[in-house]
Design a binder for these strands. Sequence first.
DNA 1: CTGGGGATCCTCCGTTTGGGGGATGCCTGG
DNA 2: CCAGGCATCCCCCAAACGGAGGATCCCCAG
Lengths: 208, 208
Amino acid sequence: MREHPVRLMIVDDHPVVRDGLRGMFDGLPDITVVAAAADGREALALARSTEPDVVLMDLRMPNLDGVGAIRRLHAAHPATKVIVLTTYDTDGDVSRALAEGVAGYLLKDTPREELHRAVRTAAAGGRVLSPAIAGHLMAGKNQRQKDPSPRELEVLRLIAKGAGNKEVARTLLISETTVKTHLKHVFAKLGVETRAAAVVAAIERGLL
Amino acid sequence: MREHPVRLMIVDDHPVVRDGLRGMFDGLPDITVVAAAADGREALALARSTEPDVVLMDLRMPNLDGVGAIRRLHAAHPATKVIVLTTYDTDGDVSRALAEGVAGYLLKDTPREELHRAVRTAAAGGRVLSPAIAGHLMAGKNQRQKDPSPRELEVLRLIAKGAGNKEVARTLLISETTVKTHLKHVFAKLGVETRAAAVVAAIERGLL
DNA sequence: CTGGGGATCCTCCGTTTGGGGGATGCCTGG
DNA sequence: CCAGGCATCCCCCAAACGGAGGATCCCCAG
């Protein structure tokens, strides 16, 4: 299928994880780790100089985080496949990453062999998902609510900090009625009916 | 100081991290990795057979998680030092771990050399904290509120799921008045004044 | 044994929330 | 051009909430 080994770049802010991943691909004839970056910014720079075929990357990073990094990576290197490798499996992250066209979304508890397979699959143009993730997506497809709008999230953020409608209104320079309207929409979109549940839902989906 | 190498056990449910850590201690003359476990249960078993001097372990694990594992480890092997190594730095986790008498609390973005130093320090009977953690503790000491009681948290959990006072009362088989009282205490202990802020605070402190 | 914390209950009261209706502009993508 | 999403605002109203006071019981630690 391929004469040259897959050129792999690792992106993760934890040295432990970087080294762990590097070690996992050690000694494989068909995969070579050509770079390891600690954040999105570094990843972009290294991608330019090392031209990886596949990038394994964490979503939560300093400087330039996952989704942004993926977008700019794709823009600069359309042929490069990105596999997200993260600890979390929040819906928000997953769907936003998938929207960016990633080649895979794996959890960090993925065993060695599966990682190998994932990288090969991605290099060959395929897609891979951790079973847990796939499950989440299935569950989500049936009653997927749209995400709250930016303005609505702004309101929700203040609510999460303990503000009342009045206070939110003052802070955002809008009327209290508007705050309530935003909140009503947030509730509908998150499928909840109290502010408390709304903030939890938003946090779980990675919106806050 | 010590004639024999430090016997180190690694406990983490992520293969990536396990291998990463193992690699980081490779080739050190004074530290030997004698075991690696995927959860608390396994850790206890391996501790008995391998008698490690120091244990590096994650807090969030399946089967038997951090705090429980630490407690039982200490009970069975009082001389064994435990260093918590985790991604999170939530107050709740930190204080509960410290209460268990751990020898250290490090974040996973700790560089290699610091990890080495930490293990040596722990083996010698010392204590180590990530700077970020140390900061948190300082901040906490000045205005530390007590954590909510188990019952109070039970109420808060239901609130987080969107229940109203009435519903909580029915679920817990107590009166609505009692629910409000619990909540009032929760607010005071978390330093907030709305349910929404309370659930966020609780989540941030790792109480939910 | 005395105190304090937890858990349970109460009343009173003003404020906030959440749900039901709308309505208006503004932009963007078919 | 027109539907649809967003953001902004309005009224009405019942229910829920949060604060301020108690009060009892129990249990454990000093």
